[in-house]
Structure formats: structure tokens, C-alpha cells
Write a protein that binds this DNA or RNA. Structure first.
Lengths: 194, 194, 194, 194
DNA sequence: CATGAATGAGGGTTCATTCAT
DNA sequence: GATGAATGAACCCTCATTCAT
């Protein structure tokens, strides 16, 4: 029984991952339920067996991705290292994610007012939760004297905005390795904090 | 004759502006030609007299807005002030634009792979042109010793990314005035350059 | 201008009439928008130019038919004849309608819980309005001593029920002419009132 | 074995009864096989074990209900009472049924051209059989001088139609008890016969 | 016997686009 | 130049039905 449920859960995750692929590649509106089903080697009908409708599907995509991202940054927060190192790691982690999972990441940046009010609040909450983890690092850094910033919220926004923009220009085929990019970004962004 | 053409041009600009409003408010896909026509107090049919199709319409929106933005930054570049001041002014100008014309600005950030190849290259070229103006300021600053950065391209991306993200969180109803936001952003972002 | 609007109104009426034909022949659920459009020698798209959706379409059918029926019985009520004659004429009129416009009439009898609350109240009101015209005749007859009934409401229901059932068995190909049927029904039903 | 079959039969009857409930409440088209299965605390798959398809299911519903109704009226016919009393009892029985089992009764009134030809003839035959029982009472009454009607068929139709219409207006929450309604109806309808 | 999963054929609806007037 | 009307291709979604397990 438990095994069965685990399998089901795994399957749903796999489906969400594939769906996110298509959706973020084509965009929410251009990706049809047929497209998504095809990617899953299913028919549309089967898709609707698992998800009530298109919005529900994309909503669950969002949720899954955000939850995973939150977990990872939380793990960094729990490390026993300096605040500077935490921020560095968080920045690098974020950038790796933005590059490695470009499609899914991209999806998060374009909620496109697709969601019904009920869903949107959940998503926004989770987004805020994620962002607040960066706030925590900043706050911790201020407390122990590592960082010297007054407008913490805005600094957080600057950092997140700078990182998210990578989407728009980075190409894995380019000359820069993702490791280099991440390192350089971390270096420059830390200049703002210190 | 010349007057007539001017009038026509002005009319078209007005149309583009209104259209951009609707499109960026609703998003490209949710904004129907009917919506746009209604905003222009026209019928759909009339709209098609001026623009061959929806893509052409949005393409011209993009072009107009970008051209105007480029002009403004070019004007700053031509000023006889220090590089630091130029960058400061450019940042503030950009942020004002992002806040004051949120809808149009937003449209620029979501090309959404709407464009056919033919159009997209024109847009990308113009975008690049705009971005390169920031490069020029940075280069100038490096030449005259004001700025000390190695990875100029990446720094430019950090700055642009940070600024564009304002879209996502700034609300005119919030406590922060746009003047404050622009000033603070300029201050922090200049820290990266110096 | 006025002529144009009249034409449009007439066209809409024609459309409603044809639509009612299909719908009542096939039933609301079996009649597809394609079917209806085909009957109108149109495409589905054109249909949606005139009616927001299927429910709106059928709602307007109902309304039109009921309105016309109400007018006719009201005309009978206004005649200067005895109550008995009025009831006789109303019965005959109703039965003619049930037989001549079998399809539309049939549609009225099967609201099939198709309507949204907003619409259903309008329809029920109009139905009640129609039925109340029979009440008025009965009341008038009681006042002037022609009729001798205690439970007026129930008698009205008996009369309407009996007449509406004709739908279920009368066939124009059968031996009975509609004139005969109407006359006999009137005769028997008046026995209840007198 | 015999016991087993009896149990099975009973089970099927229970299923039909529950199914009829859902179908007549929602209407044939709005009631999905899922709905029906849920009411039976089963899954769709199981339902298909018992019934070949949806039409078969509703067909058996019809048949069961009609058979039961026929039996009851036949019992009345066999009583040793006057024709007037028989008709009175039949009317009352019919009305009780219409009120007590509103949903199932309602289903019978809306065959909705759901049935394939093969089925429909069986149903129509059974309906006719039921109706003919009223004919028999009338005929018997005519023979023994209780009733004085020429157009027996039409009178039967008037009586049935009047009774079936009760569906449309009677509410158990209303002021009238079903006993009152049945009595009054019987009284008025007998006026037609005598 | 029963279930979960899948299929596939529509049906309602939207909307960019066209065109006669 | 402008309008109303119409088209048709997609798209989301539903649901009766099937079937391996």
C-alpha cells in the first residue's frame, strides 16, 4: 500500500517535471494539453485523470519546484559557516539552478497572471518564503557584523533580480562556464553587502 | 502632405501606445484584438487596416518603445559629466521608466517567443543596442579610471537584471517613493563598479 | 438606422426559431452548436457572434416563445365574450400551439435544469405569468357565476397538465384532426369548471 | 443456488433504484457513470460488470419501475369494487407514486430519445400496457353504466396528463398534503367521466 | 469481481483573420 | 477608411467505454 502510494507520487513528480519542461519551453499559452500529454507519452484524457485542469497542472509544477528550491537554501542556512559563505553558497546554488533547470526556473518567473486567486496566494507565499531565506542570511550577517547594509529588503531584491536575469543571456554554449558565472556573480554581489 | 504624414505618424504612435497598454496589462495572449480595438475606440476591422496582424502590431510596439528608451540614454551619454554621474543618471532614468511605464516596460521583458524570426532579430538588435549604451558608460569609466571592473559584460547584466526586477515588487502604493528607490539602487549598484 | 435594427431583430428571431427547432427535436444535450449552426446555414463561429454561449441561446429561445404565447392569451382575455368562451378559446389556442409548434412547445416543457439561476428565475416568472392568465379566466368565471370551483389553482394545473400531455401522444398523421382534438379537450375540461 | 440468484436479483434491483435516483435527479445526460458508480459506492469498472453500457442501465431502470407500477394498478383492477372506486383508487395510487417517487417517476416522463430502437419499443409497449389499465377501468365503467364518455382514449389521456403534471408544481414542502391533492384530483377528474 | 488507468471521440468556446459593403 | 459579420482552426475539457492486473 505504502509502496503503491510512493510509486504514484513518484509518477506524478515525473509527470510534473516533464510538463514543466514543455510549458516553460513553449510558454503557458502556447503549450497545449496535447503537447504536454505527448511529452508524457500519454493522451490528453489520461492527463486529466491526474490533474483537474491546465491551471491545476501548472500550479502543481510551480509548487513542486519552489518547494525543492526552498529546501536547498534552507540546508545552506543550517550550515555552520560564516554569513558570507552562506550568501556565497546560496547565490551559487541559485545560479546553478537558474542555469541547469532553465526551463522550470523560467516558468517561475512568468506567472503570467495565469492563476486563480486561490492558487496565486499559495504561490506568492512560497515565493516570499524562498526570498525570505536570503533575508535571513542578510539579517544574520548584519547581526554578526559581516554585512553593513541599511535597506536590507532592497538589497535582497537587487541580488535576486541580478541572478534571475541570467536566464535572459546565459547560454550553455557560450564561452563562460556556469561555475565561472556563479563565482563572478557571487563576488560582485557580495560587494554590495560588505 | 508632410503635415498629413506627420498626423498619421502621430496617430499610429498613439495607437501603439494604447495597444501596448492593453497588451502589457493582460499579457500578449490574453489581450485579444477586440480588447485592443476597444481601447482604441475602434473595431477590429479598422485595426487591421493599420497593422497586418497581431504580431506586426506588437512588434511595432516593441520597436517604438525601445527606440525612445535608446534615445534617452544616448542623451545621457552625450552629457558632459563624469562617468559615475552618467551611470547614476542612466540607472535612475531606467528605473523611472520601469516604474512609470510599468505596463510597456513589462511587455519588453516578455517577448514570449511571440515573434517570427524575422522580427525577433530586429528586436534583439535593438535590445542589444540599448544594453550596449550601459557598456559604453562602463567602458568610458574604465578608461578614465572611475570604474575598476574586469568582467564588464557581466557587470552590465547584473545592473540591468537588478533594475528590471523592480517590476516584480515595486508598488506605487507602497511606502517607498520611486525617487528613493532609484537613488538607493544607484548607490548600491555603483558599489559594484567602483 | 431604425430599419437596420429591425432587420437585425428579425434575423435574430429567425435564428432563434430555427435553433429552437433543432434543440427541441434533438433535445438540449444532443443538439450541438454545430447542429444548430448547420440548420442556420452558418458556422459555429457565427453563432457565437450572436449569442454568448449555448445557454444564452436556448434562454432567448424560451423567452421569445413564452412572450409570444403570453401575448396571444392576453388577447383572448381582452375579448368581450363570456368566461366560458374565453376559456374555450384559450384551451383551443394552447392546443393548437402544442400541436403546430410541437418542437418549440416541447422545449418549454423540458427546462432540464439547464439554466443558471439567473436565467431560470426569468423563465419561471414568465411561465408563471402565462399560467396566471388561465387563473384570471377562472377567477373571472367564478365572479360572474359561470364557474363553480373551489380549488382554482389545482384546476388550472389539471387543465394545463392535460393539455400539455398532448405532446406525448398526438401525431399529425393520426386520424384525429387537431381541430377535433382541441374541441373535445375543451368540452371535457370545461366539465371540470362548470 | 436459488438463494444466490435471489440475492443477485435483489442486488441488481437495489442498484437500479440508486441509479434511477441519480439519473432522474441530474437528468440522463448530466448524470455520468462516475456519478452513478459513486452513489452505488462502486467504481465505474464494477458498474460495467453489471450493465453493458449506460443505455442498458437506464433501460433496465425504466423496465423495473414500469413493471412495478403495472402490477399495482392490476391489483386495483382485480378488486371487487365499483368502477368509480377503481378509478379513484388508481388515480390516487398514481399520484402517490408521482409524489413519493418523484425522481423515478420523472425519469419515465423523459425518455429523451435516449433509447435505441430495440429498447424503445419495449418501453413504449410497457407504457402502453400501463395506460391500457386505465382504459380497462373506463371500459368497464362504460359497460356497467357508471361512466358516460364517448372518446375514451382521449379521456384517458386527459386524466394521465393532468396527473403527470403534478411533478411540475407539487412540492412536499408546500401547504398541500399529498393525500389532499390526490383526493381533489380524483374528484375533479371523475367529473369528466361521469 | 473489482480497480485504476487510459483512450478517443466529440462538444463548447475563443479568437485571429478576412471581406463585402 | 471603417464596420459588421463570418470563418475556421485550435484549444480545453468531458465522459462513455475498455482492459490489464
Amino acid at each position: 500500500m505504502n509502496l503503491k502510494m510512493k510509486k504514484q507520487l513518484q509518477k506524478k513528480k515525473d509527470m510534473l517535471r516533464s510538463a514543466a519542461m514543455v510549458i516553460s519551453k513553449k510558454g503557458y499559452h502556447r503549450a497545449t494539453m496535447d503537447d504536454i500529454a505527448a511529452e508524457l507519452l500519454m493522451t490528453k484524457g489520461a492527463l486529466y485523470y491526474y490533474f483537474a485542469n491546465k491551471e491545476e497542472l501548472i500550479f502543481q509544477c510551480h509548487e513542486m519546484i519552489l518547494s525543492e528550491a526552498i529546501e536547498e537554501i534552507e540546508a545552506i542556512l543550517a550550515l555552520e559557516v560564516t554569513s558570507i559563505e552562506k550568501m556565497e553558497k546560496a547565490i551559487i546554488r541559485h545560479i546553478y539552478f537558474a542555469i541547469d533547470e532553465k526551463e522550470m526556473f523560467n516558468m517561475l518567473l512568468q506567472p503570467e497572471s495565469t492563476f486563480a486567486d486561490q492558487h496565486i496566494s499559495v504561490i506568492l507565499e512560497k515565493r516570499e518564503k524562498y526570498s525570505s531565506l536570503f533575508d535571513e542570511i542578510i539579517a544574520e550577517g548584519k547581526r554578526n557584523g559581516s554585512f553593513r547594509v541599511k535597506e536590507a529588503k532592497m538589497v535582497r531584491m537587487i541580488i535576486l533580480g541580478a541572478m534571475n536575469w541570467i536566464q535572459q543571456w546565459y547560454s550553455s554554449k557560450g564561452e563562460q562556464s556556469k561555475e565561472d558565472v556563479a563565482k563572478i556573480y557571487a563576488e560582485y554581489l557580495l560587494k554590495i553587502l560588505i
